[in-house]
Design a protein around this nucleic acid. Structure first.
Lengths: 143, 143
DNA sequence: TTATCTGCAAACCCTTTGCATTTAA
DNA sequence: TTAAATGCAAAGGGTTTGCAGATAA
């Protein structure tokens, strides 16, 4: 996490931008998140520890993090975007409960191999993918 | 296609709604589409053959088609939604070229089996899924 | 010093809603 | 006749942008 902030600052320096307390505050809270978070949610969390930071700045910082390759914007079928950390390690996919909204992340290398396979058949070179499985989680399907 | 319109009219009748020339026009153009189309694009296509139909009506008809199970709303990482026909036959997924924007639909039953498998391991019952593979199509990767 | 950053408000895009009028049944 | 549908304009979310003042370098 500390190194994530360092990565960000390195990117900022390279671009001739500035390290500000707002950017550090937003990045800190963002990197402390486990899953995905919307701009609005992040804004509210940041406000607790660093009041006075505007929603606009949160949006701008998320965009910066995305450009720096440290965050990724996603959309789970809704107009509102959410952001998640762009990890160095393997790509993950999502299981989404349509009743309670719970989102579980998972990885499945064998599926990814098949994806490459399919893409090859259509002449595509895959650079990224998204897979979302919708359904009911254990709690909701037995309730 | 004619039977799709019939399906829609059946749904309309069941709900005590009305068959209007606007609804028929929008549905006709929508069902004639091969892939996905945004509300705006559909509105413009409909305008060519049936001028005077409002964008609002297009949105309302798309919502109706979705309720009737004849259309499905999707979002490919952008705020703007697109609609596609909800076919009776197998679910399909998408290959998306990040350079030229081309979208190819494909089906891969073996991947779907694996998805069920993964979900089961997490206690989920899958009702739907989305899979999008991003990359370069043949034309773009060799250009 | 000075180019970047901030917060606010206003603008923006996409979609939905309120309302008076029209229309299918 | 009458409940539903239409088109317009206005409102609604979520996100971006213009700008004057604040701030890191």
């Amino acid at each position: 996490m500390a190194n994530k902030i360092a990565d960000l600052n390195r990117y900022i320096a390279k671009k001739g931008l500035k390290v500000t307390r707002q950017r550090e505050a937003v990045a800190e809270v963002f990197f402390a998140e486990k899953g995905h978070i919307s701009a609005e949610e992040l804004y509210m969390k940041v406000a607790k520890s660093h009041p006075g930071i505007g929603l606009t700045t949160v949006y701008r910082t998320l965009k910066l993090l995305t450009e720096a390759g440290l965050a990724k914007e996603r959309r789970f079928g809704e107009p509102q975007g959410v952001y998640e950390k762009e990890d160095e390690d393997r790509h993950h996919d999502h299981l989404i409960c349509t009743r309670c909204g719970k989102i579980v992340e998972f990885k499945e290398p064998s599926i990814e191999e098949m994806q490459e396979d399919v893409a090859r058949r259509y002449g595509f070179v895959v650079t990224d993918h998204k897979m979302e499985l919708y359904g009911l989680c254990r709690t909701c399907s037995t309730a």
